[in-house]
Simulated assay, not measured.
Amino acid sequence: MFLTRECLLRYLRAAKWDSSAAFTRLMSTLLWRREYAPHALPPEHVSPENETGKQWILGYDLNARPCLSLNPARQNTNPSDRQIQHLVFMLERAIDLMPPGQESLALKIDFAGASSGKTPSLSTGKQVLNILQNHYPERLGKAINLSLPWYVSAFYKLITPFVDPLTREKLVFPARMKDDEEAEIINYIPKEHLEKEVGGSCNFEYRHGVYWGALVELSTVWERSYFIKRFKLVE
């Protein structure tokens, strides 16, 4: 179920409590959801996009937000509509896994090992921003960017004019750990919910054949359990 009391409040907050503007934005999203059907994207359709583990949901940040990790170095496909659908699919799964009372997620983007050829194009970046800002308002709690190479910094500068000022404030750029120093990222995500490669203590290895099916099943169970409790449904 999409159109809940919490949903209405998110759109009102995003529109700075202008009810007319919030209504317009919400109607636009309802039309988009009817045509794009993000809640009904088949897992098997977007599964090839994630065979190398370029995205995964792992753990929660210090504010109990589910963490969606993006790993550009693991990019395995050419630009296409399915790439965008894959990101939307993962956003929907992260929302499914939000605990009661939580409405936002943490986005962690690790650019380590990524080449310039794997950076999204400006048009793709604008398309993703449009979806995030217009159809998932108030869903981004923090965007944690790691190991930015110069060309990604340039990319951010190109898309900055298209980023809402409130969204811009949620972007953070913690330094990676050096030698025995603690990684700055633990100021946002606890060690036990963080991969060892970025300064955590979680020994996580992505295996698509195991992870993908488990993610689909877990998000379905959590979503159903949440709405049974939320609306006191009976079997």
Results as ranks from 00 to 15, higher is better:
S28R: 09
T29R: 10
L30D: 03
L30H: 04
W32Y: 08
W32T: 00
R33W: 03
R34F: 02
E35W: 12
Y36Q: 12
A37N: 12
H39W: 13
A40C: 15
P42G: 13
P42H: 02
P43I: 02
E44K: 11
E44C: 11
P48K: 06
P48W: 12
E51R: 14
T52I: 04
K54D: 07
K54V: 14
K54C: 09
W56V: 14
L58I: 07
L58P: 10
L58G: 09
D61Y: 07
D61G: 10
L62N: 01
L62Q: 01
A64S: 14
A64F: 04
P66I: 09
C67N: 05
C67E: 05
C67L: 15
C67P: 02
L68H: 06
S69A: 15
S69Y: 12
L70G: 03
L70R: 04
P72G: 07
A73Y: 06
A73H: 06
A73M: 08
R74Y: 11
R74V: 06
Q75H: 15
Q75T: 12
N76D: 10
T77Y: 07
S80I: 11
D81N: 10
D81Y: 14
D81L: 13
D81T: 14
I84F: 06
L87E: 09
L87V: 03
V88N: 05
V88M: 08
F89V: 00
A94N: 00
I95P: 01
I95E: 00
I95D: 04
M98D: 03
M98E: 05
M98K: 08
P99N: 06
P100W: 09
P100E: 08
G101V: 07
G101C: 03
Q102H: 12
Q102M: 10
E103H: 10
S104K: 02
S104W: 04
I109Y: 10
I109P: 02
F111A: 11
A112R: 08
G113C: 02
A114L: 08
A114K: 02
S115A: 00
S116V: 15
G117Q: 00
T119K: 10
P120K: 01
S121L: 08
L122E: 03
L122M: 03
S123Q: 06
S123W: 04
T124P: 03
T124N: 10
K126D: 04
Q127T: 11
V128A: 13
L129W: 04
L129N: 01
I131K: 04
H135I: 06
Y136K: 06
P137E: 07
R139G: 02
G141M: 05
G141Q: 05
G141L: 05
K142W: 11
I144T: 09
N145S: 10
L146P: 02
L146N: 01
L148H: 05
Y151E: 14
Y151S: 15
V152N: 15
S153G: 12
S153Q: 13
S153N: 14
F155S: 08
K157D: 06
K157G: 12
L158Y: 03
L158A: 07
L158K: 01
T160S: 15
T160R: 15
P161I: 02
V163E: 05
D164Y: 01
P165L: 01
P165I: 00
P165K: 05
L166R: 13
T167A: 02
R168K: 11
E169A: 10
E169G: 05
K170L: 06
L171C: 05
